[in-house]
Nucleic acid binder design. Sequence first.
DNA 1: CAGTGGTCTAGACCACTGG
DNA 2: CAGTGGTCTAGACCACTGC
Lengths: 267, 267
Amino acid sequence: MPTLPETSDEPDVLQLTEAAPNATLATPAFSPLYQQIKSLILGSLRSGEWKPGEAIPSEIDLAARFRVSQGTVRKAVDELAAENLLLRRQGKGTFVATHAEQQVQFRFLKLVPDSGSRGSEGPAQRDIIECRRTRASADVAKALALRAGDTVLQARRVLSFGGVPVILEDIWLPATPFKGLTAERLSNYRGPMYALFETEFNVRMVRAEEKIRAIAATDVHATQLKVPLGTPLLSVERIAYTYQSEPMELRRGYYRTDTHHYQNDMS
Amino acid sequence: MPTLPETSDEPDVLQLTEAAPNATLATPAFSPLYQQIKSLILGSLRSGEWKPGEAIPSEIDLAARFRVSQGTVRKAVDELAAENLLLRRQGKGTFVATHAEQQVQFRFLKLVPDSGSRGSEGPAQRDIIECRRTRASADVAKALALRAGDTVLQARRVLSFGGVPVILEDIWLPATPFKGLTAERLSNYRGPMYALFETEFNVRMVRAEEKIRAIAATDVHATQLKVPLGTPLLSVERIAYTYQSEPMELRRGYYRTDTHHYQNDMS
DNA sequence: CAGTGGTCTAGACCACTGG
DNA sequence: CAGTGGTCTAGACCACTGC
């Protein structure tokens, strides 16, 4: 990415109702100013100009930088905040969202204990079973937008609550962006894995898709989760995406649902 | 709340920075104008002044009615549209959302075929197995905010795709709002059940919570879904809410996931 | 107190729809 | 063409934070 150093004073080129002279008919291609601002902010997030947890410039500064009114950058920031990429705090500023915050800690983990809220059961215990380099199979490659045979990192871990194993997860990551990730670094890190990804590899997970099925425990599941063979388990296949919808993680989770359940709120 | 009948020409009383003289200290209770507008619009939706599928007054009309600027009603409508209560259509107007629309038809049904998108398998076949009046058990009463023993309607149905039974559902409804609902009316109605609720009972489902577990098929499940005893199934318990967060339906669904999966997209 | 985001206004103009 | 929602601006003022 040939990111130019911040040509600080020159505003980026913005255009309204571009004529698009080469466009064939029936190509509206009208993009409102605030959408373009959104893209520019997204670019700065992606490039790492503003890192997770940091404050971005104030609305007034951004308005000056982009040479638009404050209301226009406000609309852009509003939408990015609605998408959970930014976090507004009245009186303080606007911040890049991060998985390290307590509140949003488990934004992508929908399994909660049947009684009581999350946290009532104490902190999760994370045990890394293994972590190794391997080659992507066809389905893993497809999920991560790689080619079959490309190098990937594979990890397996068990999450326990109150000493009881509840979740078994197999995780695949593309090797290139995560070069240097080892079982030790995973094991030693306290806190959510996605927070480690942010600080160590500049990878922020922004969106995820999960496909859920019911399966019967195989011997691997039975051993790791300490349940009888054949026990019904939730199979949760997640693909997590960074900015710009690039798939960056495939995760296959197996959840016990005798004391927990997958909670999904829709509106 | 002593809601006065629509005093048509007189604008509803709005106040900014209410002094709240009787408020004890540390009681901010500041509500922005657009939030109050939101509540008023919500009231009109709830009362049935504007029905699902209908257009609500234009922003200019609403601004005049509430004696605020167009920008303020715009912000109120924006939020209601973001919550899927209203639907904006440029050039045409703003409409009350409805479950009868093709696009949002299955907003609360997250089960999709493994290959191909929804609809590729043809329309769903809905078979009502039974529908009867009964008394609410303790857990049903709790879910519907009733008292144990209150009268409820209970229905059981099977959804099939391409002739294959995929979903078994047990549905509980409070008897009062749904007086007159019979197995015949359910069976004869073509289209989503929530669309029938809107047109026949003025009940619009707005929000839902689902708790998902993996279970083994019992004989009831096995018979209705034509799977072997013990087959892992998704157990999906849904509570659906109308405006103002009143629980209006309890639904226990059992999903086969051999050809379908529960799809959950998070952002 | 200064600086931030949050609200509200008034007005101009644009994009889309349908008669 | 009129009417709708959508964008953009400029300015005033309010609420919250922290020094």
